[in-house]
Amino acid sequence: MILLDRDDLIDGLRELVAELHAAGEPVGLRIVGGGALALRHFDRRTTVDIDAVQVSPGDEGSVLAAAERVAERRGWQLDWLNFKAAQLAPWWGRDIRWEPIHHDDLVTIEVAPADALLAMKLKASRPGRDTDDIRQLLAVCGIDSVEAADALFSEFFPGDSLTDRAWLMVERILTGGPLVPPDVPPPADLGSAN
């Protein structure tokens, strides 16, 4: 499995934008998960993929085919861009203020804000895999208690509360020392393909 850093993600998305322009079909993508963290919120070192949600009408298959062409040129796994995380996105709660990283006449790409990403990471709460992301997102969001984390989670997932596993994870993080907000990277520039 190829590990992708922030520069890889930016370069891959630039090429994807060029592929989508060549197809001439309007596309809107929203990025969640580790890709969104790396592109907008903090230095996450690496990720294996970009989890996206397609929000505009159009053929999801053509977007994936374009992403596969990028992968083949770069020697990446074919699912470096995928739509597998759509079920984790909080669609029914608090309004999400998606942050644009690219917008032109055909292609729009946005990333989830830190608070929505924290809610999603808390929903998944995979020990080890999500712990550092949750730690950094708690700092970014200014969350300093398990109760505050639970309240934020409930805003995005109405009627739900943190699972016992998520509650314990947040409790351990908060008792493990002070949270220091990470440096925020400059906005991703997807201006032109290589």
Score class of each variant (00 low, 15 high):
161 S>K: 13
165 R>I: 11
52 A>L: 00
62 S>F: 03
126 R>E: 10
20 L>P: 07
8 D>S: 08
13 L>D: 00
66 A>Q: 04
103 H>D: 11
62 S>H: 03
65 A>G: 14
150 D>G: 15
175 T>G: 15
47 T>M: 01
36 A>R: 09
52 A>S: 11
132 D>K: 12
59 D>V: 03
132 D>F: 14
80 W>Y: 13
191 G>W: 01
44 R>L: 08
63 V>I: 09
142 G>E: 14
24 G>M: 07
81 L>C: 13
37 L>V: 15
51 D>E: 09
160 D>W: 04
107 V>R: 00
160 D>E: 14
152 L>Q: 13
15 E>Y: 03
72 E>Q: 14
98 W>F: 07
151 A>I: 06
44 R>I: 01
158 P>Q: 01
80 W>K: 08
19 E>N: 05
173 I>L: 15
38 A>D: 06
62 S>W: 02
165 R>E: 12
59 D>R: 04
170 V>T: 12
69 R>P: 11
58 G>K: 02
119 A>L: 06
79 D>Q: 14
129 R>P: 12
151 A>D: 15
107 V>K: 00
170 V>Y: 11
2 I>E: 13
127 P>I: 06
145 S>E: 06
31 I>H: 02
73 R>G: 08
193 A>C: 00
95 D>E: 14
169 M>C: 11
117 L>Y: 05
18 A>M: 00
29 L>D: 03
34 G>N: 07
175 T>N: 15
72 E>H: 13
16 L>N: 02
70 V>G: 02
73 R>W: 10
9 L>Y: 00
29 L>S: 05
115 D>W: 00
100 P>H: 02
3 L>K: 15
184 V>H: 13
121 K>Q: 07
153 F>M: 03
143 I>Y: 05
53 V>S: 04
154 S>F: 02
20 L>G: 07
182 P>W: 02
55 V>E: 10
70 V>E: 01
123 K>I: 03
146 V>A: 11
101 I>M: 03
82 N>L: 08
38 A>W: 01
177 G>S: 03
37 L>T: 11
169 M>H: 11
98 W>D: 03
190 L>T: 00
72 E>F: 12
75 G>W: 13
54 Q>V: 04
54 Q>H: 06
54 Q>A: 08
36 A>P: 14
78 L>M: 13
60 E>D: 12
30 R>Y: 06
10 I>A: 00
181 P>Y: 09
4 L>P: 10
66 A>K: 04
98 W>L: 07
124 A>R: 14
115 D>Q: 06
112 A>S: 07
155 E>W: 10
22 A>I: 04
184 V>E: 14
161 S>A: 15
182 P>Q: 07
35 G>C: 05
109 I>T: 00
161 S>I: 09
106 L>A: 00
184 V>N: 12
5 D>A: 02
